[in-house]
Design a protein around this nucleic acid. Structure first.
Lengths: 202, 202
DNA sequence: ATTTATACTGTATATATATTCAGTAAAATT
DNA sequence: AATTTTACTGAATATATATACAGTATAAAT
């Protein structure tokens, strides 16, 4: 799809926001009000540009006859899938994002920030298998028994969390793997977040 | 929420369908066209009734100013969760439906009909744990290695599927459970569907 | 160098649309 | 038995809305 200008992006965002807020698309006048234009033709031209570039369709003659293209509608509702690379942290930086998948607000009980693609079988006995997508909420507030994403220097790992005092144990759910003992103040140690759910695509 | 009459349900369905099709709500005239009314006031009265009962809100003066209530909007996008009861089949009958959860069309690669709430640990080594929700597609076309929902008389069970000729093996993913051998033509045996995905709420 | 796209203001207008008023009739509720 | 709700037709109308036309100005593409 053709790139949008900054103004056109603003107009598209305005349409999305208006629909989310009211349930129906804006009129030309509504767009002018939201973005400070003084002529309805300003909105009209932008709409025609968005239509030409394939981001919306317009039903001629119909009031509020704006329809977001499939592609456009989904863009606002995706969540990144991040690969668990042995070296490197799961940040939201573009180079770490595997793909985007549709986002459903109330899919899990807690909200979450990204999906982590699982590599290896260290959490096998917790029912977390290779290639599963674990929903991660970014937080450092974790409790004993939580499944957490922990970073130790450049290593990122998914384990059970267990702490007593300053001592932290990262426990795998697989006898073939070793427990990791670490100190709270250890340099380079960091809790990225915790698991709040899981989805698997067969 | 107050119950709707048959006519009111038709009007509400019409609005939902129109929005799904065009991306924006219908006018009074649109509703008349879709449902065969000859006066715009027929639509108007129904809309006011739907508003009064809390299924929609109407922004006065705005064209197409119909907004589906949160509750209403979600109704069209939910998928049932069905408990795996030892006796009884996972049908879509009301009494078997545990709850409804929001539905995302493209959540898994294949579409699916309902979620099955897992009881027991017979598929533990396949990473399917107690209380997981397995996405089931209703079909009898299954292949060797698929995880299937099989019914034998009143027993419903989730197992690996393996067939050779007329002989069918239902294999658990847990050494504590026994394999089930059965014949294709056995009375009361039936493949309900197969697993196409899984979600877990921590 | 010329054309096209972007980014608007400002005016005008046909028509799309919500909404009111006047009825009729049957069913449900009080 | 009286009132309210449901379920419409039919006509009228104020206004909400899309959209065309006339300009101005700058940036980008050919």
């Amino acid at each position: 799809m053709k790139e949008l200008t900054i103004q056109q992006k603003k107009v598209l965002q305005c349409i999305k926001f208006y629909i989310k807020k009211t349930g129906f698309p804006p009129t030309r006048a509504d767009i002018c009000r939201e973005l400070g234009f003084k002529s309805p033709n300003a909105a009209e031209s932008h709409l025609r540009a968005l239509e030409k570039k394939g981001y919306i369709t317009i039903e001629n003659g119909a009031s509020r006859g704006i329809n977001l293209t499939e592609n456009t509608a989904e863009q606002s509702q995706t969540i990144p899938v991040i690969g668990l690379v042995a070296a490197g942290s799961p940040t939201l930086a573009d180079e770490n994002i595997e793909k985007h998948i549709p986002y459903q607000e109330s899919l899990f009980l807690s909200d979450f920030d990204y999906f982590l693609r699982v590599k290896g079988l260290s959490m096998k006995d917790a029912g977390i298998m290779e290639d599963d997508l674990v929903a991660i909420k970014k937080t450092s507030e974790v409790r004993n028994g939580d499944i957490v994403v922990a970073r130790i220097d450049d290593e990122v790992t998914l384990k059970y969390f267990q702490s007593s005092g300053n001592q932290i144990k990262l426990i795998p759910a697989n006898d073939d793997f070793e427990e990791i003992y670490i100190n709270k103040e250890t340099e380079g140690f960091f809790i990225e977040g915790k698991s709040v759910g899981l989805i698997r695509e067969n």
